[in-house]
Simulated scan of single mutants.
Amino acid sequence: MPLRHVLLAVLVALVWGANFVIIDAGLHDMPPLTFAALRFVVVLVPAIFLVRRPDVPWRDIVLVGMLMSVAQFGLLYTSLHLGMPPGLASLVLQVQVMFSVILAAVALRERPTARQQVGVLIGLIGLVVVAVGRSAATPLLALMLCLGAALAWAGGNVVARRVGAQSGLGMTVWSALVVPVPLLGLSLVLDGPAAIADGLRHADLVTVGSTLYTAYLCSLFGYGVWNTLLARHPAAVVVPFTLLVPVSGIATAWLARGERPTTGTAFGGVLLMIGVAVTVVRLRRRPRAVAEDVGLVSKSPQGFPALQVGCEDR
């Protein structure tokens, strides 16, 4: 991956890390699914009139929107609303790296290496330790919803990778078309119209600022860059940069909220991050010809380079 793409991936991870505290701050008077829907209304208008639709089938645009936006953020916002600490959420959501590798192996035939398989196993063990060692103030349901959000994100990663849309921003904006109505519909069913009206009536500057941050920085900038990188590089190369998300998220939660992890959560978090690191560590590059001769570099069915077993420096 070129250096400029590496730097963009790092910046996106830092923006996404601070996102958890900012979302949680905006949730104080707003039903979570309504708040998530508002985010994507802001994403859509006026961008939908300025950004060209990606040259991919509508079914793929809808699938990306339903997985990466409706499912991921509907579950995440609800998890935070139910008491999931923002810093812990930023950590747990990184299990999507393991989910992405597993799903890419099944759906895209991007075969994981032995090292990556070990990393996935370590990460999943760390996740179990986090679940067991979490504080009593963290509801199990909130944790499970956060895991569901991670699985949805991983599914969105793999679909975006398979589609290979050249315009990441276009995919972000146009896939947002399918987001507000399902989220608002669910909010009407689960929260009721009175709660939605009350939340909108009491929206303040914190709610507005949170919505603008999540819409413009996290969605338009973040996912625009992210989907572009996924279209140009294998999923197992791009998604590991989310390793930096919990670093930013935990630091932001500590500075802004004084949130400190329990000993069990900290230990499990270290294991989880080690698992992610082992999954994605890349050593010195082998010559491509040699790698191809021994089957270390292959092509996916879509013609993109598949999961690269040989490790490299660039």
Rank of each mutant, 00 (worst) to 15 (best):
M1R: 02
P2I: 00
V10R: 07
V12S: 14
G17A: 02
N19W: 00
G26S: 07
P46I: 08
A47D: 14
A47R: 12
Q72D: 03
L75I: 01
S79T: 04
L80S: 05
G83D: 11
P85T: 04
A89W: 03
S90N: 04
V97N: 07
A104N: 14
R109D: 10
P112T: 07
I122M: 08
A137D: 15
L143Y: 11
M144E: 09
W153S: 10
G155E: 12
G155L: 06
A160L: 00
Q166V: 14
S167M: 10
M171R: 07
W174A: 07
W174E: 03
A176I: 02
L183W: 01
G185L: 04
L186W: 15
L200M: 12
V208R: 07
Y213D: 05
A215D: 09
S219E: 13
W226M: 14
L229P: 03
P240L: 04
F241K: 00
T242F: 13
S248P: 04
G249Q: 02
A253K: 03
A253N: 00
A256Q: 12
T263A: 15
T263F: 13
G269T: 06
V270N: 08
L272T: 04
M273P: 00
I274H: 03
V278F: 11
T279D: 06
R282T: 05
R288K: 11
V290T: 14
E292H: 13
E292L: 14
G295C: 10
V297F: 06
S300F: 05
Q302Y: 15
F304D: 15
Q308D: 15
D313M: 13
